[in-house]
Design a protein around this nucleic acid. Structure first.
Lengths: 112, 112
DNA sequence: ATAATACTTAAGTGCATGCTTAACGAATCA
DNA sequence: TGATTCGTTAAGCATGCACTTAAGTATTAT
C-alpha cells in the first residue's frame, strides 16, 4: 500500500481523456492502422499520434510498422493493472463492511 | 460507445495521481478527518485539500463537516463507473476472440 | 477571554497537456 | 519517374495542474 506506481499514474492518465478512451474502445473491436483509428476524430493526425504515444507509453496499446502502415492493437495485460487496483480497493472496504456486519451480528447475539 | 463522458474523464483524472490514489486507499480502510487523511503526505494541507476537491468533484469521495472537523469517506458507487467501463472493453475484445476461436473451430471441423 | 485546533481562501509559480500548422520521410501507385 | 499515400517531426501556443506561502475563519479547549 502507499505505492508510488508511476505505471498506474500513466495508465489512469491515459484513460482520463475521452479521445483516448474512444481510441481504446475502437481498438477493442479489432486492430487497425493509425489513419483508420484516427478517422472518426475531428482533429489533426499529429494530435491523434500524440494521443497514441500516450497510450503506448502507458502500455495500453502496442503497435508495429509494416511498410508505411502502422498497425495498433490493445495490450490486454495492462488493463489488468486497472482491474486489479480497483478490485483491491473494493475488497478492502468490503472486508471492512463484513467485519462491521460481523460485529453487529455479535451484538444481536448478545441481546438474546 | 464513443461516449464523451466527462464524469469518466474526472474519475480517471482523479486516479491518475499517486497521492490521490493513496488517499482513496486510506479511505477504503475507514472514513477519517482531513488532517488524519493528510498526515502521511509530505505536502502542505492546502495541497491535500486540493487533491480532496478533485476526488470529491469526481464523485469518488464524499465528506461532511461537523463542528470544525470534516470527515471524508469513499463513495463506492462511483467506483462502479471505472469497473463497468473496463469490463465493457474487456468483454468487447473477448467477444471478438471468442468469435475468432469459433471460426478456427469451424475450419478444424471442415478439415475432418 | 485567550489560545490552540482544524480547516479554508487567495495568489502566485513552474511545468505538463492538448492542440495547431508547416514541413519532411519513406513506401506504394500510375 | 513522379505523384500519392501514410506517417512523422518540430515549433509554438493557450490552458490546466500540482504545488507553495501567507493570511484568513470558525470551533473547541483552558
Amino acid at each position: 500500500m502507499l505505492n508510488e506506481s508511476p505505471s498506474l499514474d500513466r495508465v489512469f492518465h491515459a484513460l482520463a481523456d475521452s479521445t483516448r478512451r474512444a481510441m481504446v474502445e475502437r481498438l477493442a473491436l479489432r486492430p487497425m492502422s493509425v489513419s483508420e483509428l484516427a478517422s472518426p476524430f475531428a482533429m489533426s493526425l499529429p494530435a491523434v499520434m500524440q494521443h497514441l504515444a500516450v497510450l503506448e507509453e502507458s502500455g495500453l496499446v502496442r503497435s508495429h510498422k509494416a511498410g508505411r502502415v502502422r498497425t495498433c492493437r490493445i495490450d490486454t495485460e495492462t488493463f489488468g493493472l486497472v482491474e486489479r487496483w480497483t478490485a483491491d480497493c473494493r475488497s478492502e472496504w468490503e472486508g471492512r463492511l463484513d467485519k462491521l456486519e460481523d460485529y453487529i451480528n455479535t451484538l444481536k447475539g448478545q441481546q438474546k
